[in-house]
Amino acid sequence: MDKRMRFRAFVGILAAVIIVGVLFVEGSAFAADTENWAVVASAVILVAIALAAALVARKRLKETKSGIPSEDERSTALKMRAGYLSFFVSMYLCMALGWIFLVLLEDTTTDFPAVGELMFILVAAMGTTYLVIWTAVSRGKGTP
């Protein structure tokens, strides 16, 4: 199996896992007859991830066909640095949001989110921040 076939197989398996995951989460929610917005929002995020994965796979296949190496030394270094920066920024943002919820809203009359919802908000915020920062930093500008 050549490199391209392995990559296609990996993307196929990833897509299948994501689709099964979405069906499982949604199916469980409907079977339990719950109206939890976090479940629906999670499914939306999973679908968005699947869509993003498909777009990335399409771009990489296009590049591979045109002869551009996918594993370039500088690109790898930039992506690793982007990942490092994104992780720390998103982690601190997640901690700041948690602090706002737990400390600032604790003694107010504002509706406090349930633990599950709070976790979802924090993880969603962390994931979104990570994705945005990673995309911006890894666009190839500057020195890693």
């Binding site: 551009i68 190496p69 370039d72 030394e73 500088r74 690109s75 190839g140 500057g142 020195t143 890693p144």
Partner: peptide, 25 residues
């Protein structure tokens, strides 16, 4: 870039002194 197996941008950045390549590269 094609002979070495890297992107053209990598060669550009090395030439401009903006990227220090590994010993292998």
């Amino acid at each position: 870039a094609r002979k070495i197996g890297v992107r053209r941008e990598t060669i550009l950045f090395i030439e401009n002194g903006k990227y220090i390549p590994s010993l292998k590269l």
